[in-house]
Design a protein around this nucleic acid. Structure first.
Lengths: 221, 221
DNA sequence: GTCTATACAACGATAGAC
DNA sequence: GTCTATCGTTGTATAGAC
């Protein structure tokens, strides 16, 4: 596993060059560019030329690194699914619906604010039938079933209303993701862009209150 | 306003042929095909070839009727905005939030069930910054402001909670449109497609209850 | 008015130079 | 390993035949 013959030990000049150092930097830039372009134009609409332009490479250069447009897209999708799973979390069910749902809503809202492009890619892929996303959703499906079971338990314990657990999750996703997917419409109707920290906190509070009341989570939940 | 010189008066053989009869039939087929393809592939991703295939025409034939891909897309967008405005309705404000919001939610849900493709086109156009939709949104913006004022009046009358009126509208749109835009995901997690009349009524009831509780509309609202 | 043959630009991708 | 020159295909659109 030696990388190369040894070399002088200057601190400012790394002795060994990790394989694909340029590659790693390139791929990071490419991923960022791909997310931006796929979010704006969709999978079919995005061109490798546009992604190359945003990443600052020639189209041919890009193709060398990505293999194919579909492979690049799949990588991006996988990253987004990983985010989705990382944010999802009903493990601490014993804290009750107010805390668990509230925290989840906050994480989803922050994700919508910070990574709207990723949310839009997920939305667009779902809208076209999710042909490339579906095979990556196994874990998401299991986690969703588990979360639904947790909600059912809360209902049985009298901590919230007997809403349909799965539909409640849909509604949470709908409202929180709306702030990413429809960001432009929201800015249009509000007359200003999604604003500073304080504004975001207001939105999170409003959404949280709306959902918890909708789910019938009382003061004691 | 005479259409042509007179002709025999057989009932089963129209005397005059309205100008562009073939054209009207073609345009109807083209619109339906365009909605399907734009919804699946987005504006950039949709090809005139694909639309022509679905409509059952040659690509060149299609181009004769549509002028350009952008013109076709704009026409579809205008139709969708017209739908949006027709469904929106807060004129009967005196009936109170329970009835007005409930009826509106029902109309939105039925639209999501019956025209998911149209909802998706609207979503995709919004996600990419709505460059071609924005100029068509003047009326929608006015109606939205009026609706927000109505909600404010309800709040002042103590008929519902002091939620942010605009955000409440966003949340209604988010939840109802979710059943169109994320239809495939919903089917995936529920393990079955959006079902029959009874299933749809259940979903409408669940969404309506969720929103009205979230808005703090009491029994008397 | 309707449709076919065709133009030419942009697409994703790769063989081969460096 | 990296990148450039170039390929074959498909894209939107139109001139001109019917």
């Amino acid at each position: 596993m030696t990388t190369a013959a040894a070399a002088p030990a200057h601190d400012d000049a790394p002795v060994t060059r990790p394989p694909g150092r340029i590659r790693a930097r390139m791929l990071a830039a490419i991923d960022a560019a791909a997310i931006e372009v796929f979010a704006r134009d969709g999978y079919q609409g995005a061109t490798t030329q546009a992604i190359a332009d945003v990443a600052g490479l020639s189209k041919a250069q890009l193709h060398y690194y990505i293999g194919s447009k579909e492979a690049l897209y799949q990588r991006v999708l996988q990253d987004i699914v990983d985010d989705w799973i990382a944010i999802f979390g009903f493990a601490d069910a014993h804290h009750g619906p107010r805390k668990v749902l509230g925290d989840y809503i906050r994480r989803k809202m922050l994700y919508s604010f910070e990574h709207p492009a990723r949310s839009r890619i997920f939305a667009a892929e779902t809208m076209r039938g999710a042909p490339l996303l579906r095979p990556l959703m196994g874990t998401s499906q299991r986690r969703t079933s588990q979360a639904a079971a947790v909600i059912t338990a809360w209902i049985d314990a009298g901590l919230m209303r007997p809403v349909d657990p799965l539909l409640l999750l849909f509604h949470i996703w709908a409202v929180t993701q709306h702030y990413a997917d429809y960001e432009h419409q929201i800015a249009f109707f509000r007359g200003r862009a999604l604003g500073d920290e304080a504004d975001r906190e207001r939105l999170i509070a409003e959404v949280t209150g709306f959902v918890l009341r909708g789910a019938g989570v009382g003061e004691g939940g």
